[in-house]
């Protein structure tokens, strides 16, 4: 009788132990299901969000067309100056400054944003490329190099004073563009993170792609405005049609 009771107790204990193990295993599997379910859904949503692209007609896009118009206008203004009509004393400096400006304008004409015409698909990579090109190439080659090299050419002439204004304008634009471009680069690079898509305000009130594109194209417009200012200074200093 006692033996039978003991046996039943052992069997019951074993049953409780087995149920406990089963419960533990199911809890762990539930946790696994929870994590994997979360990862699958967030990955699908994240993939969908960052692979988003939008069709943009560059000819109608205000910032891009303004940049292209400014560059063309600056080129025409510089070309309108007839070097032969410049006084002999200033002819050499006029020629070398003109070459510096024309070289940088030609460099800007090779930029991805200048060569973009018609309707195209724009995605995060396109915006990132525009931004990297501006930051690594034009920020130095145009905004730093031009005032520095023009200043070297004109420092012994009377128009050096008038160039100071243009030079300081270049400097402030460079620092603004560097700041915004660095912010934008870091923002775009963080798109591998799920946080990029879980920011509620960004999901609801504005489109990340169009916002980034507007920022980067606005920087290009600021750059072209500086080139236009430089062309105006060149024309007013060496003569020609303004």
């Amino acid at each position: 009788m006692i033996l039978n009771l003991k046996l039943r107790l052992v069997i019951n204990l074993k049953k409780v132990f087995c149920d406990f193990l089963s419960l533990l295993a199911s809890s762990l599997l539930g946790l696994c299901l929870l994590i994997s379910g979360f990862l699958i859904f967030i990955n699908l949503y994240h993939y969908d969000y960052i692979s988003y692209d939008s069709k943009i007609n560059y000819s109608d896009y205000y910032n891009v067309s303004t940049f292209q118009k400014n560059i063309d206008s600056a080129f025409d203004k510089v070309q309108s100056v007839d070097i032969n009509s410049v006084s002999v004393n200033n002819r050499t400096v006029a020629n070398s400054v003109r070459n510096i400006i024309i070289d940088s304008i030609n460099d800007l004409k090779k930029s991805k944003i200048y060569t973009s015409v018609g309707e195209q698909n724009v995605d995060f990579k396109t915006v990132y490329d525009y931004n990297v090109e501006l930051l690594s190439n034009y920020s130095y080659n145009t905004l730093f190099y031009i005032p520095y090299s023009v200043e070297l050419q004109v420092r012994d002439y009377s128009f050096a004073k008038s160039f100071d204004e243009v030079s300081s304008s270049f400097e402030s634009t460079k620092s603004y563009i560097d700041l915004v471009s660095n912010y934008l680069r870091n923002r775009l690079l963080s798109n591998s993170d799920y946080i990029y898509t879980t920011d509620i305000t960004r999901m609801t009130i504005f489109n990340e792609l169009s916002d980034s594109l507007a920022l980067v194209t606005n920087n290009y417009v600021r750059l072209s405005n500086e080139i236009l200012k430089l062309a105006d200074w060149y024309v007013s200093s060496f003569g020609g049609v303004r």
Binding site: F17, L21, S22, A25, C32
Partner: peptide, 18 residues
Amino acid sequence: MLYFLFFAHIFLFVKELV
């Protein structure tokens, strides 16, 4: 997730054994 999976396996093994 892999550790959870392994321990779940172990618990189920022991349960089956018992």
